[in-house]
């Protein structure tokens, strides 16, 4: 693996930033040059959030991922995954939660949340993996560990030693939650089979 572009999307407050921090450290430990970029500010108030993470064996120039060149699109919310679908490379992989969080435009009744977002994403992109938000929380026993579960899912497709992931997760989550998060990570790993 020479380089890797990962785009994480979600809604402010969902844990996108922590997931991207972990991913960045994993890349560095695995010997890559890593750059990441995200937009802060107003996006913290329940707006769309995205984080671009790029690994390269030699050097990353721009931390910003170009259109149709994300190897992975990771969605914390399904509408946000759909919104970013143009960013995925043709042979890239989409991993997304089927969680639905209505934007204000929808909850106030002025716009419509499309029916069957999952179906639309799958129809437009072959390699797509959705996981069920509610079932996952039941399995991993804590809604706050969903971001680590998603990292597990991502790790199942990426050729980086599992131990590196575990080491970084241990260093980044609150000490009391290490076991819970590692369990969530292991559950996520099952996605790629």
């Amino acid at each position: 693996m020479e380089n890797l572009n990962i785009l994480i999307v979600g809604v402010g407050g969902q844990g996108v930033i922590l997931a991207s921090e972990v991913l960045t450290l994993v890349g560095i430990k695995a010997g890559f040059d890593v750059k990441k970029s995200e937009i802060h500010g107003m996006s913290q108030r329940g707006g769309s959030v995205s984080s671009d993470i790029r690994f390269n064996k030699v050097k990353v120039h721009s931390p910003v991922i170009a259109r149709k060149s994300a190897d992975f699109l990771v969605g914390f919310e399904k509408l946000e995954a759909l919104r970013a679908i143009d960013m995925v490379a043709d042979d890239g992989i989409i991993i997304s939660s089927n969680y639905r969080l209505d934007p204000m435009t929808v909850s106030a009744g002025s716009m419509i949340y499309p029916d069957d977002v999952e179906g639309i994403v799958k129809e437009n992109h072959e390699k797509t993996y959705f996981f069920d938000h509610v079932e996952t929380i039941e399995k991993i026993k804590n809604p706050r560990a969903v971001n680590i579960y998603i990292l597990g899912a991502l790790a199942s497709f990426i050729d980086i030693d599992k131990e590196i992931w575990i080491e970084v997760i241990k260093s980044r989550v609150p000490p009391k939650t290490v076991e819970l998060n590692l369990n969530a990570f292991e559950e996520g790993l099952k996605i790629g089979g």
């Binding site: 402010g12 996006s43 108030r45 329940g46 946000e80 934007p103 204000m104």
Partner: peptide, 9 residues
């Protein structure tokens, strides 16, 4: 499909 925008609130 049209994707509803998600402005901050």
């Amino acid at each position: 499909v049209s994707i509803p925008v998600r402005p901050p609130a």
